[in-house]
């Protein structure tokens, strides 16, 4: 909690210097990932949440649900983007484990800083460094499966680029993220002592400025002895009717989770943004 209060204090210091405005182009704030940061569904992107440009601030509120064979994950998140340079986020995850009739909850506190480049302009892609501090609140199942810790911090570097007129007259987006993580199943099954390096990638094609179709892949560590952890993938359709609202619908394949085989199903995210 101290962490979050410190962040609020930083925000409070910055905010009077900026105006809340939305000068950036439609969809350039991305959607809200399951870990609360601007991104796709399963991977954080190099973009900063909301539509605030330099001299402005913006942000997003999002509700997400992943519904696969034996699990349902509900996510509520809020993120603030400052100066198109810094992003802070909080999200609460609630995983319903249907076969056991129990829930595993986790909080994720995120921060991101844009280091260089720009999503659209110039040769260099937008480069961002980020972290996610995660705290698992229901360690019964994770401990039973052999997890060592109840909290952990993921560190990552992300590069994102939008190519105007990229393919067949369409704008094309790609993002790559390198993540250093000790989390089992993003932390919902706890954390290991050791971090591992994993890669995540997203691509999307904008059919027009409101509709994007894409796919994501997220490599996962597989550090629990007791159960297998698989890589994740999804195929998504994103709708950005305006800068206030976005919806993402995806089909997702999450592989084995906590001993339950080949979990696949739907993902829906609804986002309000500024």
């Amino acid at each position: 909690m101290r962490n979050w209060q410190a962040r609020l204090a930083v925000l409070a210091l910055f905010m009077p210097l900026m105006v809340q405005a939305d000068s950036r182009l439609l969809a350039t704030g991305g959607a809200s990932s399951i870990e609360g940061q601007a991104g796709g569904g399963i991977a954080p992107w190099a973009v900063i949440s909301g539509y605030g440009d330099v001299g402005e601030w913006g942000g997003a509120l999002a509700l997400g649900r992943v519904s696969v064979d034996d699990f349902q994950l509900d996510v509520q998140s809020v993120s603030v983007g400052l100066e198109n340079t810094l992003e802070f986020s909080v999200s609460r995850q609630d995983l319903e484990v249907a076969p056991l009739g129990l829930n595993i909850r986790q909080d994720v506190f995120g921060a991101k800083a844009r280091l260089a480049g720009d999503l659209i302009y110039g040769a260099l892609p937008q480069l961002t460094a980020g972290l996610q501090y995660k705290r698992n609140r229901d360690m019964g199942v994770p401990l039973a499966l052999g997890a060592a810790r109840d909290s952990g911090t993921d560190l990552y570097l992300a590069a994102g680029k939008l190519w105007l007129n990229g393919v067949l007259g369409r704008n094309v987006f790609a993002n790559g993220t390198l993540r250093w993580t000790a989390a089992h199943q993003t932390g919902l099954l706890g954390f290991d002592e050791q971090r591992e390096l994993v890669a995540e990638g997203s691509v999307g094609v904008f059919l027009n400025r409101h509709w994007v179709i894409g796919a994501e892949y997220r490599q996962k560590p597989d550090q629990l002895q007791s159960v297998t952890e698989d890589d994740w993938a999804d195929m998504f359709v994103g709708w950005f009717p305006n800068k206030r609202f976005a919806a993402v619908l995806a089909w997702t394949e999450l592989g084995d989770i906590a001993g339950l085989a080949s979990q696949s199903g739907w993902y829906l995210s609804l986002q309000l943004s500024q």
Binding site: A21, S23, R24, L25, D53, V54, G55, E56, N84
Partner: peptide, 8 residues
């Protein structure tokens, strides 16, 4: 010219 003005 600011980035915001360009994008607008």
């Amino acid at each position: 010219v600011t980035s915001a003005q360009f994008n607008r």
